[in-house]
Design a protein around this nucleic acid. Structure first.
Lengths: 252, 252
DNA sequence: CGCAATATTGACCACTCTCAATGAGGGTGG
DNA sequence: CCACCCTCATTGAGAGTGGTCAATATTGCG
């Protein structure tokens, strides 16, 4: 597995492993004592390997999971033999939030590479969040953030063409990497082209062709999983498509 | 506005107006006294008319809103002059949940018809939910439900073709109407074809053509906003597309 | 009653999917 | 250490779904 890791993350893994989950997931609002309390409810914090499940569709919901290092994909079953990727998650992000309501996981979560994932039993978290006001607030914010991000993805799928989608995908990762202190323009994508295609609602071949085109156009340098964004401005322009200009393609 | 109301809802509006928001939005877990407390934080409960905004993108987030009657659409700005519809909301549903995290609305909410909408100041709700454990739990569930539903929509947009999308759209509304005690097979769609198209990531013309085709195929009877589903089984079959059968179109 | 907005329908074509072949990596076993 | 296999990625050619443009209802509103 040497090549398909997000190396920039792996290089910091040691540091991540020792720092607290709480400070990673809940960067604000919690004091030292509260952080400790939060840490106390985190039961497991085990490393997983590429292909390992964190949970599967159909599992009873008991915990949410915080990612400390590595990356995770979530997906739902689609048609025979195929999966619909619903998200890629990086350190500091939570998975399993969609299962709170029904008490059952409807999606599966699988490690894209070696990763450290912390289990947070939800009933403990609930109890704790009713005693620590700041934690409750943070929980609301985290859930809201997930909704907001999915709304953005909906907009992407509902109104953008193939190249706008891939540009948006890359810019999203760029933003998320930079927030974690990694390079905004030089990173490894731990997921396969197939996963990217499914996530963006495109065929694998289209994704592959677009990477080639972007490469040839000088927008980026790509070699398998390794991506270096070369022209962020044009990439952003591409993402925004016909915006600003008064052309109104699609759903006019 | 005689024709573009969801009449089956309107016919029950009087009843809805007098029953509590809480019992509509939070059907479980709250006792009589707690319901009263919850009601006390609901400041406004004003009627809105077709085209009225509940909130707009850019507004400071202060409240979430519960719909008591009528229907609401939410959307984000897309390209010049166009909107990307992100959701349609019916009585008992909450809007504005995506704005908690950043404290700013990134989407707008507009009434599709005359509707009753209750404002619930979020800081009050937060306070209250830390004193009533059942309320906190319900809030988590409601937020989680929104995430789950958006994930479903993502799957729809990411992996279904045009007719599967429209079938899914109709089945979704059918389910939501039946949960509210209305007919599962006979209802009015309060939104325009344009809105449906935007929501489903399709051109208006495609939506129109599909309605006609479904009508001609005997799947449903449609006359402008009035829809009567005639063959739920075939509609479900259509929605599931190539599932069950071992054909694996798209992202093979 | 006429204008504006919304729907419907048709013709055309482009974007993206499908199918198919080839190439490149990575892991396993001899 | 190399051969082999299997998965994943790339590239090409052709086809089809669905978008765009345009014209014509139909409805609603001032």
């Amino acid at each position: 597995m040497p090549n398909n890791k997000i190396v920039s993350i792996d290089s910091k893994k040691v540091r991540c492993e020792v720092c607290s989950v709480a400070s990673l997931v809940l960067p604000e609002f919690l004091g030292g004592k509260e952080l400790e309390l939060f840490e106390s409810v985190v039961t497991h914090c085990c490393p997983v390997h590429r292909g390992d499940y964190i949970f599967q569709a159909g599992d009873t919901f008991r915990s949410i999971f915080a990612i400390k290092s590595g990356s995770i994909k979530t997906y739902t079953r689609k048609k025979a033999g195929n999966n619909q990727i619903t998200g890629f998650y990086l350190p500091g992000e939570l998975i399993g939030l969609d299962a709170i309501e029904e008490g059952v996981h409807h999606s599966s979560a699988k490690a894209l590479e070696t990763a450290a994932v912390c289990e947070i039993p939800f009933d403990h978290l609930e109890e704790l969040s009713s005693t620590i006001p700041g934690l409750q607030r943070q929980m609301y914010r985290l859930l809201s953030k997930e909704i907001f991000q999915e709304t953005n993805l909906l907009t992407l799928l509902g109104s953008k063409n193939a190249e706008e989608r891939l540009a948006g995908f890359l810019l999203d990762f760029s933003n998320r990497f930079i927030k974690r202190g990694f390079s905004a323009t030089d990173f490894y994508l731990s997921m396969s082209r197939n996963d990217i295609g499914s996530y963006l609602g495109l065929a694998v071949e289209t994704v592959s062709r677009l990477f080639t085109r972007f490469h040839d156009d000088g927008l980026l340098h790509v070699e398998r999983k390794h991506v270096q964004l070369k022209d962020m401005d044009r990439l952003k322009l591409l993402f925004n498509g016909g915006d600003n200009q008064s052309d109104q393609k699609q759903h006019g």
